[in-house]
Simulated assay, not measured.
Amino acid sequence: MPSSIPADIIRLLQAGHFNNARQVIHERFQGTVPDLSVGLALAVACRGCGDADAALEALDAALTYSPHDLSALILKGDIYYDTKRKRLAMQCYANVLKIVASATQLPAEIQSALPRIDSRYHEVATAMNQHINGALTSSPETKNLPRFQEAMKLMRGEADMYYSRPRAFYFPGLPHRQFYPNSLFDWADDVMQGTSTILGELQSITNSEGFEPYMQRHQQGPKGRVHSLLDSDQWQALFLLKDGERIAPYADACSGTLDIISKVPLAAISGRGPMALFSRLNAGGHIAPHNGFFNTRLICHLPLVVPKNCKLRVGNETHEWQKGQLVVFDDSIEHEAWNHSQEKRDILIFDIWHPDLDADEREAISQLYQSIDTFEANG
Rank of each mutant, 00 (worst) to 15 (best):
A58S: 13
A62H: 04
Q111I: 05
E109I: 01
D53K: 15
R28V: 04
A52V: 07
L106W: 02
R85L: 06
L56M: 07
S102D: 08
L70V: 06
V38L: 04
A101N: 11
D118Q: 12
D118A: 09
G77W: 09
L114E: 05
R87G: 12
A101M: 09
L88D: 11
K76Q: 15
V44F: 02
P107T: 05
L114Y: 00
S71A: 15
L70Q: 05
V38N: 01
S112A: 12
C46D: 14
E57L: 13
L114I: 07
C46Y: 10
E57A: 12
C92R: 04
D53A: 13
Y121S: 00
T104I: 04
A43N: 03
D82M: 14
H68N: 13
E27G: 00
P34G: 08
L106N: 05
P115A: 01
A127S: 13
G77Q: 07
G39C: 09
Q91G: 07
T126I: 06
E57C: 14
V44H: 03
A103Q: 06
S37M: 03
Y121N: 01
S112F: 07
I79Y: 06
K98W: 14
I74E: 12
A125N: 15
A108E: 14
D35M: 05
A72N: 10
T83D: 07
K76W: 05
I99R: 13
G50M: 00
Q91I: 10
A113S: 12
R120I: 00
V33W: 00
E123A: 08
D78G: 11
A55S: 08
A72C: 10
L63H: 02
T32Y: 03
A127G: 13
E109H: 12
H68D: 13
Q30C: 04
